[in-house]
Design a protein around this nucleic acid. Structure first.
Lengths: 132, 132
DNA sequence: CCTCCTCGGTTACCGTTGGTTACCTGGTCG
DNA sequence: CGACCAGGTAACCAACGGTAACCGAGGAGG
């Protein structure tokens, strides 16, 4: 008998309890789905360091990003309330992006992850490349 | 693979300096490419908590995972030296997986991320669902 | 005896999604 | 006349993830 009901007996309620990382609404999964995007971590870091930046400037500081992906990523972060978008109705219009407090709070665990990556990834990549 | 033209001005050397998060060999990007996988965080957490588990047991504790993805994920983690695979040549053969010290060290920043997710994601998801 | 199930996978196939390039707007500055 | 600003839209492709089938050995049930 295969229990596909996530092991939780009779609990249709999704309360996203702490510790139950395997619930359908697992917050960690949702978070990783977002910050796992190719540009998210980069943009968050850039904004965390630079404060407020306008679109073209942010694009310049994100080598390799296309306009579409930058816009798309920023929209997503806006929806998540991690960045704010501020438009100055000048001519030409200037659009500024900056992190919200929530965005800054995300940058903290993200910084821990960055540090781990910078410490350990080179070794991993090294071993990996010669092992395979 | 990741050797695409990042506007890198003739720099075949990849030294992965700290602080240069935008180099082609950006360690944070590489890390996110790995742990961003759908099952990686889940498996690392499970192994971090349970210690050593055999394949079928790990599969049971990872609701929704297919044999293919579990194997594939574990192989990747093996290549990264985050988990070790131990085979007991009994009949039937038993295969055990556990975290390496490196894997455990990764679990620490990952735990910070989990905590952030559990704290803030519900609010984000809530706002997101009613905003769009 | 015969069949089903478990263990630990591998392989083939297939759909969705993420990311990319290319091309469009439309106003302004030099 | 062009480039720059801040994007939008369309088409395309590879990778990620899922399903299904298969493997060989052994144990359980009828």
């Amino acid at each position: 008998m295969e229990d596909r009901t996530f092991g939780t007996p009779g609990h249709p309620e999704v309360t996203s309890r702490r510790g139950d990382l395997f619930s359908p609404a697992c917050p960690t999964r949702q978070l990783l789905d977002r910050i796992g995007g190719k540009w998210v971590a980069m943009i968050v870091k850039t904004l965390a360091e630079a404060g407020e930046l306008r679109y073209a400037e942010l694009k310049r500081r994100t080598p390799g990003v296309s306009a579409k992906m930058l816009t798309q990523t920023l929209r997503g972060l806006e929806d998540d309330q991690l960045v704010t978008r501020r438009v100055e109705a000048t001519i030409p219009p200037a659009v500024f992006y900056s992190l919200t407090p929530l965005g800054h709070s995300l940058d903290e665990p993200l910084a821990a992850l960055r540090e781990w990556a910078e410490t350990h990834m080179p070794h991993i990549a090294d071993h990996r490349s010669r092992a395979r």
